[in-house]
Amino acid sequence: MVDNTSSNGVTRPGPLREFWYYFRENRGAVFGFWFFVGFVFCAAFAPWLSPYDPTEQFRDHILQPPAWQEGGSWTYPLGTDPLGRDMLSRLISGARYSFFVGIVVVTISASSGIIFGLLSGFAPRWLDSVIMRVMDIILAFPSLLLALVLVAILGPSLTNAMIAIAIVLQPHFVRLTRASVLAERQKDYVTSARVAGAGLRRLMFVTVLPNCLAPIIVQGALSFSTAILDAAALGFLGMGAQPPTPEWGTMLAESREFILRAWWVVTLPGLAILVTVLAINLMGDGLRDALDPKLKRS
């Protein structure tokens, strides 16, 4: 009477094992992942990893080149900046700010985006239209320009820059969530929950949302890098973190005038931004490949 097909000795790997199996196939993604782990490690243990205080000025060692170049010394492995601050310490502390920006921006934009997306997926047509048109308007602006305007209104600081970037990134989450919600809502299990008497809130958060999460996670990973990039850009324009904060974009802006005399002051923060963003994007692509059932070879 009992039909058993799933208990013939072969156990299915756990969801994490399975995820890692697919993720591992993408070499770039694995590289990105390990770089990201290192980045998080730097951000978490910055005060212990960095040899000096990032704001401490060594007036005798202004603009000292990195250790491997003539005139450099291992006291300051990556050299010093125009005020005699240790570059390595500043870069490590900068990781902390960038990570902070990424986490806060993704948290704010993803959570509000998911809520608006769910609302507009379940709402009557007029409310859906209102929400989506507002999101279209936000998307119609060049994102950095809109962030600049918002920071100009709120006043330049790292916190305000984060808020502005979160607002700029949020419509992507809204659209993504709404699209998945509309697709999931047609399915029988949602109707079945309604027949069981589930209220709107339960339908949204317990029934439908868990089934929409895969694309949102990927978007979250990719937004993380966009947030870091935008925060650096705002910092570079003087609208983000203010000196002497060792934020990578702000560091770039401060040292613009030394681009010909002391390459390391400009190149190193730029390189840090580049590699971090690249690594996170690679990881995000791998996440998408591993989480999207349509791209899976089973």
């Binding site: 299990y189 029934t207 089934n211």
Partner: peptide, 14 residues
């Protein structure tokens, strides 16, 4: 209560 036609769509996969 109701039982649906498609057993693959009527149970919440998560």
């Amino acid at each position: 209560q109701i039982v649906f036609q498609d057993p693959y769509g009527s149970l919440n996969p998560r």
